[in-house]
Amino acid sequence: MTALPPAVILYGPPAAGKDTITRALTELDADFVQFQRLKVGSGKTDGYRMGGAEDLAKLEKDGKVIYSNSRYGNVYVVDQPGLDEMVAAGLTPVLHLGQIEGVQAVIDTYPAQWTTVLLWCTREETAARSAGRGDSDTEARLAAWQATQDDVDSHPGQVWDLVVQTGGHSPAEAAELISERVRAAFPAGNDS
């Protein structure tokens, strides 16, 4: 029997450290690569594959949308072809998600050995980090922080493979914790 490929979901509020910890994971092990969701809209392009409404419509028509959500006036898509490409290349996708519904949709839909990680920071940390990196939409990010808190509160049964308080761990420490957890779930010698 072929083992499922390893994959990681980083869930948490804005500015919890998803980008920074993903960079630290990549430095630790080049097999970890951020999954670039398809983004339909405008604004930040780093970490996304930018697309148009026609790209989204085609994915939807072909049944290839695993999960999509709207935030900040944009649509963000986890698509099957994007994940398939990474897995075929032997990479470990690292998905950034901000909704538990999305976490569950990905786990239920895409066959992989998923390691789910809750990255958390306080509202005050989100505000300081957002301001520190020059975000022009800090208030929207704080609203998203509250939506994430509400999401966590409304899913008390959600079980995470790992919870990291990012205010108490350096990105390198968090990356090491995540890597150890993935290795424990997907020991060497498994063939994907």
Results as ranks from 00 to 15, higher is better:
1 M>H: 11
1 M>Y: 07
2 T>Q: 05
2 T>F: 00
3 A>E: 03
6 P>K: 03
9 I>E: 04
11 Y>D: 00
11 Y>V: 12
11 Y>R: 00
12 G>Q: 08
13 P>G: 04
16 A>I: 11
16 A>R: 01
27 E>S: 12
27 E>G: 12
28 L>Q: 11
32 F>H: 11
33 V>R: 14
34 Q>G: 15
35 F>K: 08
40 V>Y: 03
41 G>F: 06
41 G>R: 01
46 D>H: 04
50 M>N: 02
51 G>L: 08
54 E>F: 07
58 K>C: 05
59 L>G: 02
60 E>G: 00
65 V>N: 07
73 G>W: 05
73 G>E: 11
77 V>M: 02
79 D>G: 09
79 D>Y: 04
85 E>I: 05
86 M>V: 14
86 M>I: 14
91 L>N: 12
92 T>Y: 05
93 P>C: 14
94 V>E: 00
95 L>H: 00
97 L>Y: 05
100 I>M: 07
102 G>L: 07
104 Q>H: 06
105 A>T: 10
108 D>I: 08
110 Y>I: 07
112 A>S: 14
112 A>I: 11
115 T>R: 05
116 T>P: 07
117 V>G: 08
120 W>M: 11
120 W>V: 15
121 C>W: 01
121 C>N: 12
121 C>R: 03
125 E>N: 07
126 T>Q: 12
127 A>S: 14
128 A>C: 07
130 S>L: 14
130 S>E: 15
133 R>V: 09
136 S>G: 15
137 D>S: 11
138 T>H: 02
139 E>I: 09
141 R>L: 13
150 D>T: 12
150 D>S: 09
153 D>K: 03
154 S>N: 09
158 Q>I: 15
159 V>T: 15
161 D>V: 03
163 V>Q: 11
165 Q>T: 13
170 S>T: 15
173 E>G: 04
174 A>F: 02
178 I>Q: 06
178 I>A: 08
179 S>Y: 04
181 R>W: 08
183 R>K: 13
184 A>Q: 12
188 A>D: 13
189 G>L: 10
192 S>N: 12
